[in-house]
């Protein structure tokens, strides 16, 4: 069995964390070939070659792949697919856009957000916002899956795979990139941070969100938010944690002013330690919290930041 693993690329850069976690999940499935598809990605391919468990890197360096558009990247993967039993990617927004397209072109079902590999055909994935875990067995010749990275640790960077440059495949030219509005931040990435501090509707405004950010900075943590906080404009969309946002499993998750709707819990309930700060002692978040503090967050959060 052989695995083609799509590296997570942002521009020409590889995310070693997300890619490395998918490598860990894919190890059980066979020999792993990593595909770096982007523009100006030779350095990224060399970095990917260091991920332990990767036996070969394919580098497809072409302008068509520079912005991760689904149609050309899917066409490239399909052109390579014949050699592999499994096509795998970390379950990022980028791969969720691309892999279902690949699977339909191959006439196979996709398995999204896989949380455990049982064997080469059998996988676990959460359904109903994580309220049930389904074990499914694929009867398709090629398995196409995205892996929820929160449950896997990243492969070490001790490998030395060979890098092979490959030509671009046919680009159907159906879409064009216009612009990216990407938040630049010195904070750790939400999906790889050891600590996450999240704020909800209770924080009340974009300005007040600064107290959440101050606590995060004190702890060298990433900042998260509930959907209500994002929808109200207190926080940017890429901070959303939950069923339809990011799934995180840090060592410590601090939720302030978040009620604990199942859609939010779906994104954080596998965190090692959960702290809830909420003024309503009945808030459902307390049912999953290891430590609950019934308090006004405007007192508790700055006090906590001070005291640390």
């Amino acid at each position: 069995m052989a695995v083609l693993l799509l590296a997570e690329m942002q521009g020409g850069e590889i995310s070693l964390d997300q890619t490395g976690k998918a490598v860990t999940a894919a190890q059980a499935l066979g020999d792993v070939t990593l595909l770096c598809a982007s523009a100006g990605c030779a350095d990224a391919a060399a970095q990917g070659a260091k991920l332990a468990g990767v036996s070969k890197v394919l580098c497809a360096d072409d302008a068509a792949y520079g912005n991760g558009l689904a149609e050309p990247v899917a066409a490239l993967i399909v052109s390579l697919a014949g050699d592999y039993s499994h096509i795998v990617a970390p379950a990022t927004a980028s791969a969720k856009n691309i892999l279902p397209r690949v699977s339909a072109l191959l006439d196979v079902m996709v398995l999204t957000d896989v949380t455990a590999v049982v064997d080469g055909d059998t996988f676990e994935r959460p359904i109903y916002a994580g309220n049930a875990i389904q074990t499914v067995k694929s009867t398709d010749p090629t398995k196409v899956l995205t892996v929820r990275t929160a449950g896997f640790s990243a492969a070490a960077q001790t490998g030395s795979a060979t890098v092979e440059t490959i030509a671009a495949a046919y680009d159907p030219g159906l879409s064009e990139w216009v612009e990216d509005k990407v938040q630049q931040s010195d904070r750790p990435d939400l999906t790889s941070a050891k600590i996450v501090v999240s704020g909800g509707r209770g924080v009340g405004s974009e300005e007040h969100f600064k107290i959440i950010e101050a606590l995060a900075d004190k702890l060298d943590a990433a900042v998260g938010a509930s959907r209500a906080a994002v929808d109200s404009g207190y926080a940017p969309n890429d901070w959303q944690v939950g069923q339809t946002g990011k799934v995180v499993a840090p060592d410590l998750y601090i939720a302030a002013g978040i009620s604990g709707a199942i859609q939010h819990l779906a994104g954080m309930k596998d965190s090692k330690i959960i702290v809830a700060i909420n003024k309503d002692e009945e808030a459902p978040i307390f049912q999953v919290a290891d430590y609950g503090l019934v308090a006004d967050l405007f007192d508790a959060v700055p006090t906590l930041t001070e005291a640390l």
Partner: peptide, 28 residues
């Protein structure tokens, strides 16, 4: 005809509620 056979559907691991701390110092 489905391509995926559903082998089983189970409850996720449940978390139990922890403790309520009285103040920030106890939390730390």
């Amino acid at each position: 005809t489905p391509r995926l056979q559903i082998i089983s559907t189970k409850e996720p691991a449940q978390r139990s509620a922890g403790v309520i701390v009285k103040d920030v110092n106890e939390l730390i």
